[in-house]
Design a protein around this nucleic acid. Structure first.
Lengths: 194, 194
DNA sequence: GCAAAAAGATGCGCGCACGCAAATTTGCGT
DNA sequence: ACGCAAATTTGCGTGCGCGCATCTTTTTGC
């Protein structure tokens, strides 16, 4: 089984809250959604809402971040790229996020989701490296991805400048490119000496 | 001149607020300091306090983060290490931060201060690299440093485990070590092809 | 000097996050 | 089927961050 009734019910309310938050935000605009509205739409108390999400933005964004990290094989950098490409996002939701500073920040922060699983993956693949170094490298990759996300979401409000933020995968690849030597060095640990 | 009267006065209140926040936190413990207390101790209105800091933790931590980034010469990684080593921290303040989750998080976040100046430094030294890549690399370095900080501040509440978090410079160096190949590659951009 | 303008400080009000404790629901052994 | 223990929900109260309008102080232009 996937878990007891307890677990499933919990996941259900989480999704209900997230869905309600996203729907309401799309309907009225993010600024016109009160926390109480979300809770009511999901059929729970406002206090319960805060047991699941610690900010309105989190609730809205939660549903869009369906990407799961799976470094089954191949280079890590491509796994990272896949992680973002697979997320399910609707154009309207994307437009909304782009237009709101708080939502942009919150969505960019989802890059942090990488940190833990990536650190674990690195530690597993390369048991020789210092655990702290593995953590740090994972955090570094996540941070780079975060920058790519930020760039991708940047609103094009300055009509004078050329804003050619390409496709997200390309942006992620570009942001990851300077870290490539570091990732490659993992597989060739020959010359690590001082 | 260092600026007009306006500028100096502003800096003065900022420091007054930060100093008051730190002092009160040390006296009563961080949890027993209300924002109003800080404002009163600094001689400004509570609302004004929030014009300078957007959280109690920021105000408390602000005074401890005196490190300035200066990549005048030498390798970037050492400049980063210096950045953290030069910060003025008292043992008592450090103990307080270690013992409080919110303060720990806030202090670890000061690593972000690196991001902007480091990105600029990289862009200046290596005009050839993609601006986004420079940003990403800077963010990556900052993130690694952040991990080192987090490790350094980790409370030793688990008496069973060995917690040998060494000196901060060493931790930063370790965290930065996996990124060293990436930083080295900046100076030798000849063979980038796969 | 002086008046207009710019920048900052302040008061007010709203919505929000969260600790705490009581009430309710669920899991499980008997 | 029953009841107890654990987990979850809920209501309440507190402190907080911040937008907005207003008042005060500093700067600027003449």
């Amino acid at each position: 089984m996937t878990g007891g009734l307890r677990e499933r019910k919990k996941q259900a309310t989480r999704e209900a809250l997230s869905a309600a938050a996203l729907r309401l935000a799309l309907e009225r605009g993010p600024e016109n959604v009160r926390v109480d509205d979300i809770a009511e739409a999901a059929g729970v108390s406002p206090r319960t809402y805060n047991n699941y999400f610690s900010s309105r933005e989190q609730a809205i964004v939660a549903g869009l971040h369906t990407g799961q990290f799976a470094a089954v094989d191949g280079p890590l950098s491509e796994a990272v790229v896949r992680f973002y490409t697979h997320a399910g996002r609707s154009p309207e939701a994307l437009a909304m996020i782009t237009g709101n500073a708080a939502l942009r920040a919150c969505y960019a922060d989802t890059a942090t989701t990488l940190e833990a699983p990536l650190a674990e993956a690195i530690a597993e693949r390369h048991p020789g490296v210092d655990p702290l170094a593995a953590q740090a490298l994972a955090a570094a990759v996540a941070a780079a991805a975060r920058v790519a996300l930020r760039q991708w979401l940047r609103p094009t409000t300055t009509p004078g400048l050329v804003v050619v933020s390409g496709s997200l995968p390309d942006l992620v690849r570009t942001a990851l490119s300077p870290l490539q030597p570091a990732l490659d060095a993992l597989d060739a640990p020959a010359d690590q000496a001082s």
